[in-house]
């Protein structure tokens, strides 16, 4: 009996020693669903732009069900409580044909670098696809979407229908 009690004590003591002490950085889980005309919008960028004290800008991408879970731009998983403006955008992917040729092994890295130098650096990065959601939602200046993140994660569910 005595042995058993000792053993239990030892296990309990080691469990306490091994477990670390977590520190609450103040980030709260913030989730929701984005739909476009009623159907889930996959692959969209949802950005929470901080308004005022306490808030810290964050962002998320939506999965194939349109669901997102936002992270702070800092290290936190989730967002800090506060007021946010929300922007949502999804752009068409622009295909870089030369890059596709490189991936397919049709040209070498050396040849790609040459093509890149010929195209000029400005043209390289100038390609951007058309926005697949109404443009007003893309900018913090024009968006009508807002969210108030609270301390209670259960209340931090924000669904957006565009």
């Amino acid at each position: 009996m005595k042995m058993k009690t000792l053993m239990l004590l030892a296990v309990a003591a080691s469990a306490i020693l091994v477990s670390g002490c977590g520190k609450d950085l103040g980030y709260r889980k913030t989730t929701g669903v984005v739909t476009l005309d009623g159907s889930p919008l996959a692959g969209a960028f949802v950005t929470f732009v901080a308004q005022g004290q306490g808030a810290e800008s964050g962002a998320a991408t939506t999965n194939e069900k349109g669901e997102y879970s936002a992270n702070s731009g800092s290290v936190g998983e989730g967002l800090k409580p506060g007021e946010y403006k929300v922007t949502i955008s999804k752009r068409e992917t622009v295909v870089d044909e030369d890059l596709e040729r490189l991936k397919a092994g049709e040209i070498t890295d050396d040849e790609y670098q040459e093509i890149k130098a010929k195209r000029g650096m400005k043209e390289n990065s100038g390609s951007v696809g058309a926005n697949l959601v109404p443009e007003e939602y893309s900018s913090a200046a024009t968006t009508s979407l807002t969210a108030t993140v609270t301390d209670n994660p259960k209340q931090n569910v924000f669904n957006f229908d565009l």
């Binding site: 955008s89 999804k90 951007v128 900018s139």
Partner: peptide, 12 residues
């Protein structure tokens, strides 16, 4: 991809 920023003008 193009989702970098949020204004309609070209990416850079």
């Amino acid at each position: 991809g193009g989702n970098y920023g949020s204004s309609p003008t070209s990416w850079p």
